[in-house]
Amino acid sequence: MNRRTFSQSLLGVSAATLSIPDSMWSYENEGDQLRNIPKTDTHMHLFDLKNLSYSWLKNSPTINRNFDLQDYKAATKSANIGKMVFMESGADAGLGLKEAALVSQLALSEPNIKGIVAKADLTQGSGTEQALEQLCELPLVKGVRAGFPKNAATSSDFLAGFKALADRKLSFDLLLSPPLMNEAVEVAKRFPDTIFILNHLGNPNVEDADTTQWRDGIEKLAKRPNVNCKISGIITRFGQDWSVEKIKPYILYAIEKFGTDRLVFAGDWPVVLKAGSYQSWSRAFEKITGQFSDEDLHKIYHENADRIYRL
């Protein structure tokens, strides 16, 4: 593969319009040989149905069961995973602190869990302040993922809660779709010292032939130096008929716009099972990025994550 052949028409961009620098490619390593570079998984879910409730799982029967750390280890045993960041797993309202505390206890026996992104509601006024204070008492809590309203950039309640988050030097994981990207750009402008991590490539609507809204949103977010992008979730967008050729344009477009200093890898376990296996996703990502230089792969696979999430 060379830089003239990696672009696909799915995104409506030709190879000539993408400008990934030659320095990112390792031309000596032609072919699909995979290099032994460890990955920091920045998006690991665990489902504890005994102690927590997850109403959203009722609509996802294929993963509506307990998924514990042993399940994760079995699924990732050949994926060369090193450090892990636990991502809040959609537990019902009011359970964010309990979930983070349970994972903190789990981390006592699993030292590779280096960080937690906890669930919080940023629209609760003084309640937000109290919830964030309690979360900050758990040393592994590095950031928060919260609901992102349609009027996030103008909502006084949300912005007050976000200021409380920013004051505590917590990062913010952005879970949204393309229609809310412009709103996210405005919030990122308002809080330039807060680290943002866009989840799942911004959840592009892969069924839509016109990807203009997603591409424009990615480009605008990438212009904000405090915004990073998490490469994950893309095979789930396609479902069971995903392929390397289908997902590759989205990944390469994000890499071009964000550069290799602001990208992180993630497995999205066990949601990834709705489309394939953790191993198949990991191998696909390795294949797509396989001709990048060792220096850039170390950044994307683990160095950026260690810095961004303060691991």
Rank of each mutant, 00 (worst) to 15 (best):
S7K: 12
N205A: 04
S78V: 05
P61S: 04
D193R: 11
S104E: 15
Y72V: 02
G233Y: 01
A184L: 02
E219I: 00
A107E: 07
G82N: 13
L11A: 02
A101I: 13
Q213L: 14
S55F: 06
A254H: 00
D121P: 03
C229A: 10
E129G: 05
Q279G: 13
E219H: 00
T5H: 11
V271F: 05
N29H: 14
G31N: 11
A160K: 14
L165I: 00
W269Y: 15
F285S: 13
R168N: 06
F258H: 06
F196L: 03
Q130S: 13
K50H: 11
E28C: 14
A118K: 07
A153S: 15
R283T: 15
N226Y: 00
L11H: 00
G239A: 09
I300A: 09
V144R: 01
I231G: 02
S277R: 07
R190V: 03
L297I: 01
G259M: 02
S23Q: 07
K83A: 15
T40F: 10
I195D: 13
A153K: 03
F238W: 14
L49V: 04
P204Q: 08
A266C: 04
N199W: 12
K230F: 00
W214Q: 00
L198H: 05
G202K: 05
W242H: 09
L132I: 06
R215I: 00
G94P: 05
P178A: 02
E295T: 12
P225W: 01
I300D: 02
S55Q: 15
I308C: 08
L138I: 15
R237Y: 10
I234H: 02
L201P: 04
L52A: 04
A118W: 06
A164W: 05
Y301V: 06
L108N: 14
L69H: 12
L10Q: 14
M24G: 07
V117I: 15
R168Q: 04
G217C: 08
A118E: 03
A74K: 14
L46D: 06
L10A: 11
S282A: 15
T236D: 06
